[in-house]
């Protein structure tokens, strides 16, 4: 009873609004037919973070983003962007939702003008300039006059990012921004996200690619089947699992014995010999191994990746290829 009261009385969205770019509490979407796409989601996205929203396809990421942007009404729960009512928050938010969508018969530039006209706070006098800048940032200046119909997949994705950059933004919500991009385009998008974030803009980026989130983000949330499995800084997420030391050696049995004698936990001997590093310094372990006559060919400290975290949390592999 006491526990229950505490839970119910606790503040719902941990961070106060001014510190958080996105807060949701108990956000739930049940579609007609009973399918629960998002289940009691409590997100807290700190301002200034690059926040990776990670999950396999179909885990409720896009539905969450649609709810954040007011496109889909939640069945239950609350959400806020930048601590403001939605209508006031949206002009400060650039969004890319479920891939690019534009008017095929208009040029890239005319498409951006169209979406700029839809923003009631945008200044028409500076539209040309802002559109030019946005196209420049995504490297589409040369194709500005080309019809959208004739854009390649990568160009379409870039135009969608340009549309999200039409005004000064405090928050960017990017749903799978590297979808359909070649490796070069992916690198460019990553660089762009870093550049935008360095200017103080919060970036909320959804992805089903673990490696991408690990490279780009300061924070991450992991979704699975509509539920939030974990969230926090990348370091704290990975910190939940132990760092291991891995020894490459022709004498695995000896190595395992030495590691065990050192007091390292969870000694495994498969391809390589490995164990949880715990509080030991790797060089110290190495010195002991050598002193005990174990031939050390290689020694590595393996920090847990998000994939390990995901597998550890869900007991399932991550559908990396989508």
């Amino acid at each position: 009873m006491t526990t229950a009261t505490q839970e119910a009385g606790a503040p719902l969205g941990a961070a106060p609004p001014s510190d958080a770019a996105i807060v949701t509490s108990g956000l739930t979407k049940r579609f007609r037919g009973g399918q629960v796409a998002v289940d009691a989601l409590d997100l807290a996205v700190p301002r200034g973070s690059v926040y990776g929203f990670l999950g396999p396809n179909g885990s409720g990421k896009t539905t969450t983003i649609r709810m954040l942007l007011g496109l889909v009404a939640p069945t239950e729960g609350e959400h806020a962007l930048l601590g403001l009512p939605l209508g006031q928050a949206l002009p400060r938010v650039g969004a890319l939702v479920e891939g690019p969508a534009f008017y095929p018969y208009l040029s890239g530039e005319a498409n951006l003008r169209r979406f700029d006209a839809a923003d009631p706070t945008a200044t028409p006098a500076t539209a040309k300039e802002r559109i030019g800048e946005a196209l420049e940032r995504v490297g589409l200046s040369a194709a500005a006059g080309k019809r959208f119909r004739n854009y390649s997949l990568g160009m379409r994705q870039r135009l969608a990012i340009a549309a999200a950059l039409l005004g000064p933004r405090e928050l960017l919500i990017l749903d799978e921004p590297t979808n359909g991009l070649d490796p070069q385009g992916t690198r460019e998008v990553r660089a762009l996200v870093k550049e935008i974030a360095s200017g103080g803009t919060t970036v909320f980026v959804s992805s089903h690619l673990l490696a991408e989130v690990e490279q780009m983000c300061t924070h991450a949330a992991i979704m699975r089947a509509g539920r939030l499995v974990a969230q926090g800084t990348i370091a704290s997420l990975s910190g939940g699992r132990a760092t291991r030391i891995r020894v490459e050696t022709p004498d695995p049995a000896d190595a395992a014995r030495v590691l065990g004698a050192l007091g390292l936990a969870d000694v495994r001997s498969d391809e390589h010999v490995s164990a949880e590093l715990g509080g030991h310094a790797p060089e110290e372990v190495n010195a002991v191994l050598v002193r005990e006559g174990v031939a050390v060919r290689g020694l590595a400290v393996v920090r847990p990746s998000l994939e390990d975290v995901f597998v550890g949390l869900t007991g399932e592999g991550f559908d990396v290829d989508g």
Binding site: P17, S18, P74, E78, A80, L82, L84, G87, E170
Partner: peptide, 28 residues
């Protein structure tokens, strides 16, 4: 129960535009 600054579900669609700003907007 409302958490300060959060937009209730009923207001996120349609009526949100008419809503007065609650906290002083940080940033821009």
């Amino acid at each position: 129960r409302r958490t300060p600054g959060l937009v209730p579900v009923a207001e996120t669609i349609g009526s949100a535009e008419r809503h007065a700003p609650e906290p002083p907007p940080p940033g821009l």
